[in-house]
Design a protein around this nucleic acid. Structure first.
Length: 570
DNA sequence: GCCGTTTTCGGCCCGACTGTTTTCAGTCG
């Protein structure tokens, strides 16, 4: 499957063309094609074989030629030429927030900055200031942008980690020596970001497992290779540790390697108080092995209920486990529908029908198509005229479609004063209204808080989407008083969203737990811009679980009729 | 470079915000 490689090259080409200052529409054509290719459910090689490349939206004669060239020769001539035109590291500089093509070009031409390292050197030597067009503020912004980007790179998003880990698990399961296998570490606890990936395996032939593991195609370098433990670095430059234990120690090792560290320390203290010893091989009384095969029997022996991995942070869960009062956590299966998704009516890639079809395949009974509203021109926000047409399209689909209801939704913009950009008589016609801030992120804490509170007070707004707007590795959360927002949400029966898109996860786990404490109801939405994104729901559920949420805390666990009733209660 | 119930040429997503050799270019969404 070469889809990802090709879309990546198209994006690189677009970036280089931008730096070179080429025709913006040509650049956009490459970007659009890249996005389409990412959204394909088919292998481009198949499309080539069947002569259907130009059926990809945004791919015409020239770009289909480029795709063919790549599949047949492994290279694209004009890409190779473009790469020679500018240093490779310059493309990386474009990833720094506040640095775009013009500034990258300026830095290169005036200061011969060719990559991030050159840029950092230039900053520390104060060489940036004095360059035409760059003064104090710009330098500050570049510094801050560098920090945000680096933090984003040190840790993987949960989705990136899950994809890499699942690749390893799938490959290793094929090895006959591998009996039990599980991810461990922060990935198993479903933290929103993950540094490296831990995999735990049981086998009677650990050496053979180590051979299989270190020999996998996704491995770029072997960092360590022993009889029962090896570490590798993947093609994506991510460290993966693999350990093999005996079957009888699997539970103990899983417990130990899942962590968190604080949680483990507490468990060991509890063991000591019971005159026991806990380590990664099992629970012992003196020399005598008591248990270790499963986590369940370990918890039981320690006098605790089973603690779900997502809760293992020593923030009160151990006490509740001792009393048997842990909350019953939300599961992916509890989710009845997605309340935040876009279609090609605004800036989504797929039609409403495509989105609905995939939602039904996921077992949902409803999906809200919440396209952007009129003021968000960049995202092709819908005019009043568009709304009529979209509504009748939804009606038509709902008549035809069995087993799933498409909800007529919108993601409206909260303007800089907290007003919504459709009038009430328009708003009241929607099944679902999601409201969010898209501009003015740098307003004061007071102003931002006021905007969101005012949006909650609009009786036609049902959900506040991505309440802090943070984007992992790209943008910090804006400065907002969430306590006040939570109170407004509670008072007005406005749900707050857990945006499940992997680099948002907004609200995050901690905010989510606090919202629940204050009695706010939550909604989990994927913010999908293509059908494939609908699968992100699992990451939103992960945040909810880490935020201690039960099904009753989340509105989209409700069946359709109850959902529609509940959200209208004011 | 794509695309077409006005078009095979001439459109294509544009407004807000920021910082800056202050009347506007660059970046972002």
């Amino acid at each position: 499957m070469k889809n990802f490689e090709i879309s990546q090259i198209f994006r690189d080409i677009a970036d280089i063309l931008e730096i070179k200052g080429e025709n913006v529409f040509r650049i956009r054509a490459y970007q659009r094609a890249a996005q389409s290719i990412d959204g394909l459910s088919e292998d481009v090689e198949n499309l080539l074989k069947e002569g259907r490349l130009t059926s990809i939206p945004g791919v015409g004669k020239d770009l289909s030629d480029r795709i063919r060239e790549y599949i047949n020769t492994g290279k694209i001539r004009i890409y190779e030429e473009l790469k020679r035109a500018i240093p490779e590291g310059l493309l990386d500089i474009l990833n720094i927030p506040s640095v775009g093509p013009k500034k990258a070009k300026l830095l290169y031409e005036k200061l011969n900055i060719r990559d991030i390292r050159d840029l950092e050197d230039a900053i520390s030597n104060n060489r940036l200031q004095g360059v035409f067009g760059i003064r104090e503020k710009t330098v500050e912004n570049i510094k801050a942008g560098l920090a945000i980007m680096k933090r984003g790179r040190e840790r993987l998003t949960l989705e990136e980690a899950a994809v890499i880990s699942e690749g390893f698990l799938e490959a290793l399961k094929k090895s006959p020596q591998v009996k039990k296998i599980s991810p461990a570490g922060s990935l198993r606890r479903q933290k929103e970001t993950v540094r490296d990936i831990d995999i735990l395996i049981t086998s009677t032939k650990p050496k053979a497992v180590m051979e299989s593991f270190t020999g996998l195609s996704q491995v770029r370098t072997i960092l360590a290779k022993g009889d029962t433990k090896s570490s590798v670095r993947t093609q994506e430059n991510v460290q993966v540790d693999c350990r093999v234990v005996e079957e009888k120690s699997f539970g103990a090792a899983l417990l130990y390697f899942t962590g968190s560290k604080d949680f483990n320390i507490r468990l060991r203290q509890i063991a000591i108080r019971k005159g026991l010893k806990l380590n990664e091989y099992g629970l012992y009384k003196g020399q005598k092995f008591i248990c270790g095969r499963t986590e369940g029997e370990m918890f039981k022996a320690l006098g605790l209920r089973y603690v779900e991995p997502e809760l293992r942070e020593d923030t009160g869960e151990i006490e509740l486990a001792q009393k048997g009062k842990l909350p019953g956590l939300l599961d992916l299966e509890d989710i009845k529908g997605d309340l935040h998704a876009h279609s090609s009516w605004s800036d989504g890639l797929n039609s409403i029908e495509d989105m609905a079809f995939v939602a039904r395949k996921l077992g949902y009974s409803y999906i809200a198509i919440t396209d952007h509203s009129q003021s968000l021109k960049v995202a092709n926000g819908l005019s009043l005229e568009d709304l009529k047409k979209k509504k009748s399209e939804i009606n038509r689909i709902n008549k035809k479609l069995k087993g799933l209801r498409v909800l007529y939704g919108t993601e409206v913009d909260i303007d800089s004063n907290g007003n919504i950009d459709y009038k009430d008589d328009i708003l009241k016609r929607f099944d679902i209204v999601v409201a969010a801030i898209h501009t003015g992120f740098k307003q004061s804490r007071q102003q931002l808080t006021k905007r969101v509170v005012r949006a909650c007070q609009n009786k036609f707004v049902h959900i506040i989407a991505h309440p802090t707007a943070r984007l992992w590795g790209q943008r910090e959360a804006y400065d907002i008083d969430l306590e006040e927002v939570f109170r407004a949400g509670k008072d007005t029966n406005t749900a707050l969203e857990i945006n499940a898109f992997a680099n948002r996860l907004d609200l995050n786990d901690r905010n989510c737990r606090r919202a629940k404490e204050l009695g706010v109801r939550m909604s989990i939405g994927t913010d999908s811009h293509m059908a494939g994104h609908l699968n992100s729901m699992r990451f939103g559920v992960a945040v909810a679980r880490r935020g201690w949420l039960s099904p009753k805390d989340v509105i989209n666990t409700l069946p359709l009729d109850r959902l529609l009733k509940e959200i209208k209660k004011r």
